[in-house]
Design a protein around this nucleic acid. Structure first.
Lengths: 343, 343
DNA sequence: GATCGTTGTGATAGCGCTAACAAGTCGGTA
DNA sequence: TACCGACTTGTTAGCGCTATCACAACGATC
């Protein structure tokens, strides 16, 4: 077979192989492989000669060949609902940064909040024989779980620690977070409370927050919260529509807990525009502590969760598994209720 | 060599190879390969038998082997300054979605606004023999450009069309966008105008906007704008610090053009808090048309650029190249100045 | 000085797949 | 009947790398 080049590349380098480097350096291909993979096994003298040859020839190792021969891929698959949400993108960025230091690349899948799409993505990404998966949430299709189990690949689940993970998890308790918000609202004197968030079947994180909220209200002898379910993906504008739905269905509502700051901020700004006084007439609480949350007037009361820490923790958990730790303990991150002016 | 499994997987499937499927279906491995890669070459009868075998054995093709044998990788490398910016993450999401339909995965690199890091990332990602690169901006180190050229891989550059691309580009004119803002500010009667954005050596997009702004002010016989350069990465809070720097260095400033909506929104909200009337005392213009831009009071005047369209366009440009189009025309997207209340 | 372990390097044999070609089958045409 | 081309399937030979084992060279040990 004729020498070929990168992809459908027209011409040039990239065709330099390890044995080209080897003959240039006067050593065997195996030695070149060692210089690249385990340099400590090679004398400094040889190492230098090989490095010179690599530089002179502009040699770039072929990852596919390396993967095939070593049966390991240096790729981790990360599946999130959508990259166009600052929380998920911050998480993924932290994961990429953490894994990059170990020479591991990340391949991202967007499930669009659908367990079925998640399953399809898992199936496809499995072709790359990833070293591990980082999934969002604890809910997956039965077949997705089977695929994970059968492949034997380590899995870390994120964003939720309220039920048992497939393997291990790096997340926080949505129920506890929702409970904290409920307690705060009850304590401040709110009586008719509503929840606005993603539809239960799409967004089990929002669901957890609602459950926690409900429990806190029950403990405070308050009526159960009205729940408005939004179809995902949500836009910021949906915050206003959520506000409207609440006011229409329950005009006497005196506090709303939004499952995302984007929604809460939109609603809060809309209240300002309408002259609805926050928090006197309507208290508002968000989730996520977006950058602007502290800058609006009144500043937004919200729950901080540090998605970047979660992204790093999940990557580290995976690395621990890859380094032989048989079953590292899940990481439960602490949320933080930040009380500002809006509730 | 003994049969091995996924990564360091403990047990289970994933060890099924194409020839296992072949013998199960009573055909050759090549026929299985055809069923997967070019099903139209195989009779329906055989195809069905092979599909049955695939399903029964839970066969999952090995992408690394496929890459090595076919000398092509089904991976595209995307390098952006940072994933933790909604504009870049929206862009990347659109790119992923577009390429996914062709079975191509995306590997992301975060350059952190550094050309040197970009070069390192290119070097590393080249090991995966990507089918193409999507880079941000037109400025790269000489060695990075050499690497691209030598590898012969198609390159699409994004976010800027103000100078000549390496290969082709999908972006918009930052100069024209800045010019539009300058013209608007001049027309509305602003006289002492400031620009707040990323440092010139880090952010050539912001630089282009500043150049356009300056030109428009010059054309309107206005003094050149004060420029405040922020060190990247910028946080939303930096909008306030930019505002402060402007007011300190040039207290008479009556308009500020921020190179990002996040900064502009922070500054606008801070003005509200301080009782500085926008736009009467200080006009504010942003860039990017964030979701909240239309919701604050006064609503933010800004420039809309549709990063998602850019992400899709850049992917399609790359696909055109891969499909043989020798040098597809660059795509110049139109920005849109959206005038609202703040300027 | 024979034996040992240690260290550095080389030779060999694949990893799982696809490209390229070979070969068989079929119906239609001369 | 012989031959052609179209279509389908099989055979062979790697892709570029690493795992594994073999082996040479060396000082340390008794």
């Amino acid at each position: 077979m004729r020498r070929r080049r990168f992809g459908n590349a027209p011409a040039g380098a990239g065709v330099v192989t390890m044995s080209d480097v080897a003959s240039r350096a006067g050593v065997s291909a195996q030695t070149v492989s060692r210089v690249i993979g385990r340099p400590e096994m090679v004398t400094e003298e040889t190492r230098k000669r090989v490095h010179d040859a690599i530089r002179e020839l502009n040699y770039i190792p072929n990852e596919a060949a390396r993967n095939l021969a070593s049966n390991s891929s240096r790729v981790v698959a990360v599946i999130i609902p959508t990259l166009s949400s600052s929380a998920f993108s911050a998480q993924v960025k932290a994961t990429i940064d953490t894994l990059e230091m170990r020479g591991i690349s990340v391949v991202i899948g967007n499930s669009e909040y659908s367990a079925v799409r998640e399953e399809q993505i898992i199936q496809t990404l499995l072709e790359r024989r990833p070293m591990g998966f980082i999934l969002t949430g604890l809910h997956h299709t039965p077949r997705a779980m089977d695929l994970m189990r059968q492949s034997g690949v380590p899995v870390v689940e994120t964003w939720d620690t309220d039920t048992a993970p497939l393997d291990c998890a790096a997340g926080f308790s949505n129920i506890a977070a929702g409970h904290d918000v409920g307690s705060l609202l009850a304590a401040r004197g709110s009586r008719r409370i509503a929840f606005v968030g993603g539809a239960a079947h799409q967004d089990s994180r929002a669901n957890g927050r609602f459950i926690g909220l409900s429990k806190a209200l029950e403990e405070a002898d308050l009526p159960p919260p009205l729940r408005i379910e939004l179809v995902l993906p949500m836009s910021t504008q949906d915050g206003i529509s959520g506000l409207d739905q609440v006011l229409q269905k329950a005009p006497m509502t005196d506090a709303i807990f939004f499952s995302a700051d984007s929604l809460a901020l939109a609603a809060l700004l809309e209240c300002n525009r309408r002259g609805l006084r926050v928090p006197e007439q309507l208290a508002i609480c968000g989730f996520g502590d977006f950058d602007l949350a502290s800058l609006v007037t009144p500043a937004l009361t919200t729950v901080k969760i540090q998605p970047d820490v979660m992204g790093r923790a999940s990557a580290e958990l995976l690395l621990a598994r890859l380094d032989g730790d048989d079953k590292p303990a899940s990481v439960v991150l602490q949320h933080q209720l930040i009380r500002r002016g809006s509730a």
